[in-house]
């Protein structure tokens, strides 16, 4: 498996030598192993590929190893004015699209308090990724919706968050929280228990100590409560709590990534 990966990388290097000189420097052997989970802070680089809407590439150099990663697949894309926390898994994949070793799944959190010099590369022969609608998306109101059938079960829903934020990530977290709130309303749940978590235990990433503020746990829980309120669920049936030092979870929305699985809100919906 690993041998195939290196052959693939070598082939990619050769192809890119033919189309654009810089590509040889960008896709080079990396220290990381396929399957390894990486976590680093960097200034993002935008590559101006054009395969239609939302097809530009985002790259992030891991300063510790010199590897340039393709981080385009994150639900939250970078802002070229600010540093990003990158968390992802190294996979074999098509490096011809963007010109970086692929991370998938990958999560990007924008660190608004850390400024970067904006940098844009030309396409340099890379194709970019044609946009396709993510499978996790909220459907329009005008589409028919299937309602749950009794007997109703108690269910828990986990909502993922970016590092340091209480904003509901578009086409990821919204999908899960929408499902949770609609389930509570559809079954006329007797109670909803919301627990907000924050990853307050310090970790060191790219030489920086990262920890989420303790009050973020409550703010995340309050966002979930506001979803319930705005969608018409009675708040007198809602119990809210916050928990710091969040543990790793098996939350679906983290796609198996360790650290992102700590940053969440859990809605326990009780019939």
């Amino acid at each position: 498996m690993q041998g195939r990966f290196w052959r693939f990388v070598a082939a990619a290097v050769l192809v890119n030598v033919a189309v654009a000189a810089p590509a040889e420097q960008q896709i080079k052997p990396v220290v990381e192993q396929v399957g390894e989970e990486v976590r680093f802070i960097t200034c993002p680089i935008y590559r101006d590929t054009d395969a239609g809407r939302k097809s530009g590439c985002w790259l992030g150099d891991r300063r510790e190893t010199g590897t340039r990663f393709d981080i385009t697949g994150s639900p939250t894309k970078p802002d070229w004015n600010h540093a990003v926390l990158v968390e992802g898994r190294v996979v074999e994949g098509d490096t011809q699209q963007c010109g970086g070793v692929l991370l998938e799944p990958v999560r990007v959190s924008v660190l608004h308090d850390q400024n970067c010099t904006r940098h844009m590369l030309p396409a340099e022969g890379f194709t970019g990724r044609r946009f396709s609608l993510p499978t996790r998306n909220i459907r329009p109101l005008y589409e028919p919706r299937e309602l749950p059938k009794p007997p109703y079960q108690e269910k828990s829903f986990d909502i993922p968050f970016d590092f340091g934020r209480d904003y509901i990530v578009y086409q990821l977290s919204d999908y899960y929280i929408d499902k949770a709130v609609k389930y509570a309303i559809d079954i006329d749940a007797s109670r909803v228990e919301i627990t907000g978590y924050a990853a307050t235990t310090p970790t060191t990433v790219s030489g920086q100590t990262l920890r989420e503020p303790a009050e973020l746990a409550l703010r995340r829980a309050e966002v979930a409560r506001e979803w319930l309120r705005r969608m018409g669920y009675p708040l007198d049936r809602v119990k809210i709590r916050a928990q710091t030092k969040a543990k790793v979870s098996d939350m679906e929305g983290a796609d198996g990534l360790t650290e992102p699985s700590r940053r969440r809100v859990t809605l326990r919906v009780i019939p």
Partner: peptide, 20 residues
């Protein structure tokens, strides 16, 4: 390329910039 346009490039995670 759409850049630095709040409501498009923030807070939604389309990216800054985003090609559209």
């Amino acid at each position: 390329l759409i850049s630095d346009s709040a409501g498009i490039t923030t807070p939604i995670g389309f990216g800054n910039p985003v090609r559209d």
